[in-house]
């Protein structure tokens, strides 16, 4: 089934929109204008983040801004809720938790 790098979501239509590119874990991915950040990442990758309290990868759950399972880190240390944030060209995201020195980066 879906491997780490493998896309999780499958597009069923509305593919005529303008393509945009984002960066996930240092690699460029292609998405479509109008995608949520969650959809942009999961049509290219298998996870959004890693659970803080277990070994498993996470990929969101409710898609309606209720469960808070889809918060991702941007490469410069900001937090975004992927399911209700529109994907923007040029965004750079990481799907791993940051290292312990995060408080030092103001």
């Amino acid at each position: 089934m879906s491997r780490p790098g493998q896309p999780r979501f499958m597009r069923l239509g509305e593919t005529g929109r303008t393509p945009i590119t984002l960066t996930v874990d240092g690699e460029t991915i292609e998405a479509l204008e109008g995608d949520s950040l969650l959809v942009a990442i999961l049509t290219a990758r298998g996870r959004l983040r890693r659970s803080e309290f277990g070994p498993e990868a996470r990929s969101g759950f409710c898609l309606m801004a209720a469960c808070q399972d889809c918060w991702v880190w941007t490469a410069d240390g900001h937090r975004l809720r992927a399911c209700d944030t529109p994907a923007r060209a040029g965004l750079s995201l990481v799907t791993e938790q940051p290292d312990l020195s995060w408080p030092n980066r103001a």
Partner: peptide, 8 residues
């Protein structure tokens, strides 16, 4: 706050 790696 939400949980973040233990750095403080």
């Amino acid at each position: 706050t939400e949980p973040v790696p233990y750095g403080l």
